[in-house]
Simulated scan of single mutants.
Amino acid sequence: MQRRQLLTRALASASIAALPTLGRAAPSGKPLKIGFVYSGPVSDVGWSFQHDLGRRMVEKEFGKQVETVFVESVPEGPDAERVIRQLASDGCGMVFTTSFGFMDPTVRVAADFPQVAFEHCSGYKTAANVGVYQTRFYEGAYLLGTIAGRVTKTNTLGYVAPFPIPEVIRNLDAFVLGARSVNPKVTAKVVWINSWYDPVRERDAAQALINQGVDTLYQNTDSPAIVQLAESKGLYAFGQDSDMSRFGPRAHLTGNVLNWGVYYVHKVRQKLAGQWKPEDTKWGMKEGIVQLAPFSKQLPRDVAEQVEKQRAAIVAGQFHPFTGPVKDQAGKQRLAAGQTLPESELWTMKWYVDGIVGQQP
């Protein structure tokens, strides 16, 4: 059983006598208590680690106006509801729940604490006091794909995936679209491990892909095990969520990095000003929440320059990774030339693009 730890960072000595009312600023002199719920350990060097960096940005930005607490390694089941409920009961006026599987528990708890502002990451269910936020992570995944398509020698890419939810499939599809945009011969193989963070499974999955001829690895999981394996095998890899270059200085070409702090500071500022409201927020490279890790010296200059041009086009709104022509795995045309995938389909994506080998679980 994973160890759970509750760590409180108190930034003011005064205790919270009353919860702040939803939509109003906290009483003068009373810090806003904010809770964060993580699916993995903050030491994962991935998803939860990046969320915790965002929490620390909130502390730095607002100082004594806030008090933050977090709970790590919370399973996406009954334990999640108990943890979320406890944070609300303990005086949190704002709670961020940071994984898809926390969606229903968040909504249930929110109904019992209408004065608390809840923010859920990666979900789609909102309520009067529940907002949701996601990232356009697929923008970075597409750019990584363009690199993979240029550096692969076997034309076979590998993807280690956690759960078959739209967020993960969307990133996989974008990665393959990017790769095939520069190298139509590329195919991609996938191994699903049914876990966000499991270094042993992640490494085993990557090894299985290598055994099938994969020479360039990407992941939607949280540990650096895949980058470390690629380093030991003389292959290439891309980190996910945070900069994992120190775990594979030669293997790690760049990575898809999330800066959650820009969003957390934005929403906490709203709350402190009495202007918070539930929203469905989807930020990407333009807003600075999706970033790329520094390019490796192994990356050819012309490849790096092309990636920078495409990144600039994405930021400027001049290019969208899901722009046709796009076919699915069965050969059906999903997007005609010049057509962009509608938002409603983008966020509910459950189909593979052409070039992915194997079936979904």
Rank of each mutant, 00 (worst) to 15 (best):
S245H: 13
A141G: 04
Q115F: 04
P325C: 10
L335Q: 10
T187L: 10
F96K: 00
A141N: 14
L217M: 10
A337E: 15
G261M: 03
Q115P: 01
Q275M: 09
G324T: 04
P325T: 13
R56K: 15
H320E: 14
W47Y: 03
A25P: 07
A208S: 15
D104K: 15
L253N: 15
D90I: 03
T323M: 08
P325G: 09
A313H: 12
T152H: 08
G324R: 00
E59N: 15
V45C: 06
S89P: 00
A225N: 02
G284N: 07
K277D: 11
D280T: 11
H120V: 13
E202Y: 02
Q5C: 07
D44E: 06
M285A: 13
V132M: 08
M103F: 02
Q115R: 10
G324F: 05
L272Y: 06
Q134M: 15
T340A: 01
G274E: 04
Q310V: 14
S28N: 10
D90H: 00
D90S: 07
D44L: 07
F175W: 09
Y197N: 13
G40V: 08
R55Q: 14
W276N: 01
K153I: 04
R269G: 15
K277F: 02
E72R: 00
Y124S: 14
D90L: 04
M285C: 15
V66A: 06
P184W: 03
S13A: 11
L299I: 08
W351G: 08
V58G: 05
L11G: 06
F247M: 09
S245F: 05
E308K: 15
E81A: 10
G255R: 07
I169C: 09
P361W: 07
V315A: 08
N183L: 03
F62V: 08
Q360E: 06
V69D: 00
S28I: 06
A88C: 11
L157T: 08
H51R: 00
S195V: 01
G145I: 00
R82I: 08
E61G: 04
Q240T: 06
Q270V: 05
Q228F: 00
L144V: 06
L143N: 04
V190G: 13
